[in-house]
């Protein structure tokens, strides 16, 4: 009964919130509504028995994206786009999205209703993967190739973000002396580090892992940047480059090493697989946290500075 109520509420609120995000007049309202939408969709994932995705949605989709959007708001003027006029001007865009929605809906409905998917096969070979959690087994062992390429994509994305927005000013020093944010930072940082470490460790046998832990570390980094306890990471710094590269380099090393002993690429030896996966996840956490921080453009330049540059 309560389950039905909760699911019904989610099913009603999610489309409503999505509609409100698109409809609302003011940009800041749209951002707040979008964060609320992300939180509810994380709940939805949790209800669908996908706690891994729920964690990522809450940490990346809501936390970090929310911070990025809020931050972008402080760079822009509050001039909402006229959504309806734009929609009238581009009817083909509406048509294309409607067609895409129909296509996706048809694809979902065309799926076999009671297919077990690849779950049983993963379950059958989970013993060999070195970890107990099936999601981690797929991500880091069975389909390690996909994850490796994903990390490469993330690196390119970080480079792109920095190329678009190369400035990384340091904030004025009076922000660093602010007692309020300073105390918040002091209280939250140990908890953030603990949670991130726990998530990497728990990935072995439960929902968690490098992406979630990296996102939480990056969240702490964003607070550090905003309260001026840390400058924006610069690509010119050697430490930043190492942080960006440890994960991919270690992963490539672990993946290539089996080739030397006559195995195939990324074929982890069964006895060492658990340890290797843990080490790779630790390194990936650092890299993912740094990549996510690279998206954060740093503190807002003064208006006079902005005017001078134009």
């Amino acid at each position: 009964m309560t389950d039905v109520l909760l699911d019904g509420c989610l099913a009603l609120c999610l489309p409503l919130l999505a509609w409100l995000v698109l409809r609302t007049e003011s940009l800041s309202q749209a951002v707040v509504l979008f964060v609320a939408f992300g939180l509810l969709s994380a709940l939805g994932w949790a209800r669908l028995d996908a706690p891994d995705i729920a964690l990522v949605e809450a940490a990346v989709g809501t936390g970090l994206t929310g911070a990025l959007l809020m931050h972008t708001l402080s760079w822009t003027e509050e001039t909402p786009p006229d959504v309806r006029a734009r929609a009238r001007r581009r009817p083909w865009a509406l048509l294309a999205t409607a067609a895409l929605t129909l296509l996706l809906g048809w694809a979902v409905l065309a799926l076999p209703a009671d297919s077990p998917g690849l779950g049983p096969e993963v379950e059958a070979r989970r013993e060999d993967s070195g970890v107990k959690h099936p999601v981690t087994a797929v991500l880091l062992n069975f389909r390690g190739y996909d994850t490796l390429l994903e990390i490469a994509v993330l690196l390119v994305a970080a480079l792109g973000a920095r190329a678009v927005n190369p400035r990384s000013e340091r904030a004025s020093s009076d922000a660093a002396k602010d007692p309020l944010t300073g105390e918040l930072f002091r209280m939250m940082t140990p908890a953030l580090l603990l949670v991130a470490g726990y998530l990497v460790w728990v990935g072995d046998h439960g929902p968690g892992g490098a992406f979630q832990a990296g996102a939480i570390l990056a969240g702490g980094g964003v607070v550090a940047i905003l309260t001026s306890r840390m400058g924006t990471p610069r690509m010119s710094s050697l430490r930043v480059r190492w942080a960006l590269l440890t994960g991919p380099l270690l992963f490539i090393g672990v993946g290539v090493a089996p080739l030397l002993s006559g195995r195939r690429l990324l074929e982890l030896p069964e006895k060492l697989a658990g340890t290797l996966i843990f080490i790779v996840e630790m390194a990936l956490t650092v890299t993912i946290a740094m990549v996510l921080l690279m998206f954060f453009p740093g503190t807002r330049p003064s208006r006079a500075g902005r005017g001078g540059e134009r």
């Binding site: 309020l180 944010t181 105390e183 918040l184 209280m187 939250m188 908890a191």
Partner: peptide
Amino acid sequence: LFVLISSAFTCQLIAR
């Protein structure tokens, strides 16, 4: 506890 901490700080920050 964590909601208490964060809401106490965000309240002050928003008010400021």
